[in-house]
Structure formats: C-alpha cells, structure tokens
C-alpha cells in the first residue's frame, strides 16, 4: 500500500536520504531501523508531507503523495505518531483524542473514543486532565490514541519506545502486535532493533541515507553482520 521509490530528501541544501526504496503491504508490520541521524525522521516527515522530497516518488494506496500537503495525506489514512509525541499540552486528554479525528474519522468519533479508551483505560482516567500533566508513557499512549482516532490505514510509529521504561516498552510492542492483529498496517521506525525485529514482518536497515539491508525480519535477526553491528551480539 506504501511504495517509496528513489526517495531523495533533506533540509535546505543538505540531502540526507540519497535514493531510498521502501514498501509496506496491506496488513504488514515493517520496521525501519537505524541509529540516530541516519535519516529516519527525514523519511517520516516526507511521508507525512511536512517536507517535500527533492526527488523520487511516494505512492500510498495508488496515489502519488510526494510533496502533497499533510492534510491530504491524513485524508488518505496515512497517519504518523511522531517522535516526541507532539500531543497538545494545553488541551485535555479528551480534546487531544477528538482532534485526532479533525479530518478523518469524524463521523465515528464517539465510537472511536470508546475504542481508544478501551485500549488505554489510563487515558479514560485522565480524560479531563491537560496533556502536559501526563507522564511520558501516558503521553505516548495519548499520541497513539490520537493517531487511532483518525482510523489509519497505515500507522507510522516513530520511535514509540523512546524514553519509556522497559515494562512500558514491552507493553508498547505487545500493543503493536494487537493492532496489527486487528488488520492495521504499521510502519515502525525504531532504534530498538531487537524488539522491533521480533515484532516486524520485514525490516529495512538504514545507514547514511540509504537502505543498507532489507528482508524478512526473522532472517535479518539471524544475520551475523547485523547482529554484530546493531544487536551487540
């Protein structure tokens, strides 16, 4: 459903991604792995239309979205849960969730609120509280909940485990499995290679703005080269 071909992108004059090919098929969990500064966020920001790519193409469900505005991309159901959560600190938990369906999924807002608060009962307890007062883990739940409110067809999770305690990280990966079990396609952008490879069907390893390795996650997890470099084994 997502086809990225020869994507070149960056900021200003600086090119960070030098021709990248990435695919996500319906129902898949695909992991994009790489250490800090290899271009994972650049990839995301181009997929979501925050920046326009220098070249190459991005197709989502058959439609070219390279350089489209973010609202259009949300309309199509490509939803990003950004790194650092980016929840609205001055809005209540409920309002944050409601704004998740600002453009997409508004008709089913009440039903989706119910669903999201069933997945994250903690958010229900914090319903009227300002998002700024939530803990990091709760904010991550809120960011994912807000993403789910817009009925994504493909959900991009950008470093969802960053800054979470080990127990919450486990819960996060369990949640990814559950959401995927319900049929949601997920593009997982992570530094945490061990757990991401367990959760994903396929994976791409990015280095210096190009795909260095790709393939079925289980196979990559066994690759001696990758184990040495990313898993410290």
């Amino acid at each position: 459903m997502l086809e990225v071909r020869g994507l070149r992108a960056g900021y200003g004059e600086v090119e960070i991604l030098h021709g990248m090919d990435i695919d996500v098929a319906e129902g898949e969990v695909v992991a994009v792995l790489g250490s800090n500064g290899v271009g994972k966020s650049t990839l995301n920001n181009n997929l979501s239309g925050i920046y326009a790519p220098f070249g190459g193409s991005i197709r989502f469900c058959g439609e070219g979205i390279a350089g489209a505005n973010p609202a259009r991309i949300v309309d199509l159901g490509l939803i990003q849960v950004p790194e650092g959560r980016r929840v609205f600190p001055n809005l209540s938990v409920r309002e944050n969730l409601e704004l998740g369906s600002y453009r997409r999924g508004r008709a089913a807002r009440a039903r989706n609120l119910e669903r999201v608060t069933r997945i994250f009962p903690r958010l229900k307890e914090r319903y009227g509280q300002m998002a700024a007062t939530l803990s990091g883990g709760e904010q991550q739940m809120l960011a994912i909940g807000r993403g789910l409110m817009s009925e994504p067809r493909l959900l991009i999770l950008d470093e969802p485990s960053l800054g979470l305690s080990p127990i919450l990280v486990d819960e996060m990966f369990a949640l990814i499995g559950e959401l995927n079990g319900e049929g949601l396609s997920i593009l997982l952008i992570e530094q945490n290679a061990v757990q991401s490879l367990e959760a994903a069907d396929r994976a791409y390893i990015i280095e210096h703005g190009v795909v260095a390795m790709s393939g079925p996650a289980a196979e990559l997890a066994r690759s001696p080269d990758l184990r040495a470099r990313y898993l410290g084994l």
Binding site: L91, Y102, R104
Partner: peptide, 23 residues
C-alpha cells in the same frame, strides 16, 4: 468548537497539528 480546539492546538504544537491534518 472544533475550530477553537484547532486554534489552541496550533498555538502550542504546530507539528502535532499538521499531523492530525489541521491546515
């Protein structure tokens, strides 16, 4: 109102606002 919520959202978190499709 929905527009009011969007205004408050944009006031504090522009990137997050773009990602939920707020213009």
């Amino acid at each position: 109102t929905e527009t009011g919520r969007a205004i408050r959202a944009v006031a504090k978190e522009r990137q997050g606002a773009r990602l939920v499709g707020i213009d």
